[in-house]
């Protein structure tokens, strides 16, 4: 017997689907299907079908990417010993060889996320089964999303109090802040990556999507907003 994993945002897409077909007051035809379900890394997730939005404002679910968290005074040294690059200051991130990223959250906590092709996180999870002293693995079950498009700063200004324009992107900043009342981790860039507690995922997604749709954007296929 093997289980399946489900993205924390899956429900939001189903709800959107239901709302749309109710609005159209007819059974959902081929065109009215705004979402499809897919499975990657044994995780079920749903995604938008529209492709046009990613230039103005697009949102997509990337919760299916594998990730690993660790904290503790010896976490940096332990990760270093696993041949990972360590961002040299708190709240910075670095790309990983072979894809994915490592983000330093504060001094002693790290988030490692794979790209669609890499699988560093599962290895680290395995390696951390019996961690050394002062290394505390953190189970990551985030709702992970990506945002992209020309109106992204406008969306952020409506949902988050941080002055993103003032960030120096060349320093690879990581921002821990709140967005529409939810604690989030944000990596800004051409594409904005946002992680939050999965149990807030549906709310965060729906709230952002409502505003995005007002701004003529929408949910898109993840390939259009794929990170490094």
């Amino acid at each position: 017997m093997t289980g399946f994993r489900v993205s924390p945002i899956c429900d939001a897409m189903r709800l959107a689907q239901r709302a749309t077909s109710e609005k159209m007051a007819k059974p959902s035809s081929e065109e009215s299907l705004i979402a499809t379900e897919r499975e990657i890394n044994q995780m079920r997730f749903a995604q938008g079908n529209s492709s046009g939005h990613s230039t103005t404002l697009g949102i997509t679910d990337l919760s299916f990417l594998t990730r690993f968290g660790v904290k503790g005074a010896a976490a940096a040294a332990w990760l270093h010993a696993q041949n990972l690059p360590i961002p040299d200051a708190p709240n910075r991130w670095l790309p990983l060889r072979g894809g994915g990223l490592i983000a330093r959250l504060g001094f002693n906590e790290f988030l490692i996320e794979d790209s669609i092709n890499s699988s560093i996180a599962p290895q680290l999870i395995e390696l951390s089964q019996h961690p050394p002293a002062k290394v505390y693995p953190v189970l990551r079950q985030d709702a992970a999303i990506a945002l992209g498009g020309s109106l992204i700063l406008d969306l952020l200004a409506q949902t988050c109090s941080l002055h993103f324009r003032a960030l120096n992107l060349s320093e690879c900043p990581v921002v821990l802040t709140t967005m529409v009342g939810v604690n989030v981790t944000i990596i800004p860039g051409e594409i904005y990556r946002i992680w939050c507690d999965g149990t807030y995922g549906v709310y965060l997604w729906q709230t952002l999507l409502n505003i995005i749709e007002e701004m003529q954007g929408g949910a898109v296929e993840f390939e259009q907003l794929l990170p490094l």
Partner: peptide, 14 residues
């Protein structure tokens, strides 16, 4: 404003 009221759902909500 829009009035944001964060809501939490367990994964079993549906």
């Amino acid at each position: 404003g829009r009035g944001f009221t964060p809501e939490r759902r367990t994964p079993l909500h549906s």
